[in-house]
Design a protein around this nucleic acid. Structure first.
Lengths: 198, 198
DNA sequence: ACCTGAACACCGTTCAAGT
DNA sequence: ACCTGAACACCGTTCAAGT
């Protein structure tokens, strides 16, 4: 994680170091609005050095967003299979929201306007790849007769929107767990499932 | 909207002018990351002047967010009544998303981390007030037997999350209207309704 | 009571110059 | 080929001083 070895002043692999330092900073208190100069400082190089590896700050941000989507996809793909599609649906949904709660600054960054429009094409590809796990689940559910046969992209849009919405509202502290009654996350997933299932 | 009259160098109501200028800037190309100094410039005062009316930038931002939630609430409350709860539900949902699409920078600001934690209490109150229209609808639907009798806050969470998610994903350009097939917004609302309705 | 100007500590970005 | 230092044009914020 950290290069505690001597830095040979032509600092082995700065590109990687910049990205790792930056990703690490997201976990801190003020993970949002982090600064390029601070990244350079922590990486032990001058504030101009990162510009040899990234055209500008937005490029670094969108690289980080890309990494975030890859991590999310890997997390969802690595989930142990469940007994039923319904259970698998539930645990996938919960894992999605959990990822956002565990990495709020990264999750915001992934969907932030900061990354700019330049990388949008690549980013949406990665985003869709991450959500592909859910789409597979929908298709399997439809084929198996567990889910209603509706336009899959419409169902996928509903799923993604609901999960994204819950995640964002939770990060923003607007969807607090209730003292009484069911967890809003569970309740929302249940409602969604009632809309999808036969 | 604009004070084209002479400015009496003790500029009548600077507080209001700052807010209006700032809100107007949100509609422009680079509405996000707008700067306090630019607001002051456009309002025709020195860059230090706003500090006599707002403790800092975050305070202005959260005032703007508050205004945004009020506008959203007014928009939803002003909708003409529909024949059925289902129709009313659909048109309210569409109006919600439409508000976000029409004011993307404002909508992002309303849910942005920029506003800080200071005003969170007031902000969530306004946010919940705006969403109260939808909650009323859910309760009416349950009482009338149109909707399933589930925990209302769970249903509300599902509705809000879905609408918020669709709005955000649409603003981010990740939920493009399909060339073929139904609009993802309509499809998502339909799916949600199937989960809510009897 | 309300506003200005200069000042401070920061950014992102560029570019000549160093190794 | 990779990095540094100084420089530029900007921020947000503060504070003495002006009307």
């Amino acid at each position: 994680m950290q290069e505690t070895t001597d830095r040979p002043y032509h600092h082995g692999d700065l590109r990687r170091a910049v990205i790792e330092t930056a990703m690490g900073m997201l976990d801190e208190e003020k993970g949002w609005q982090f600064t390029l100069r601070e990244v350079a400082r922590r990486a032990g190089v001058s504030h101009a050095a990162p510009y040899k590896h990234f055209p500008d700050k937005a490029a670094l941000l969108s690289e980080m967003a890309r990494l975030g989507f890859d991590r999310l996809r890997e997390t969802l793909e690595a989930l142990p299979p469940s007994k039923s599609i319904r259970d698998e649906f539930g645990s996938t949904a919960r894992a999605y929201v959990e990822f956002g709660k565990a990495n709020p600054a990264l999750y915001r960054l992934m969907f932030g306007a900061d990354a700019g429009e330049a990388a949008d094409v690549h980013l949406s590809e990665r985003a869709l790849a991450a959500f592909g796990v859910m789409i597979d689940l929908l298709e399997r559910g439809q084929r198996g007769g567990v889910l209603r046969k509706r336009d899959t992209r419409g169902q996928a849009a509903a799923c993604w929107a609901l999960l994204h919405g819950i995640t964002m509202l939770t990060i923003d502290g607007l969807l607090l767990p209730q003292k009484v009654g069911p967890d809003p996350l569970d309740a929302a997933i249940a409602t969604l499932l009632e809309g999808l299932a036969n």
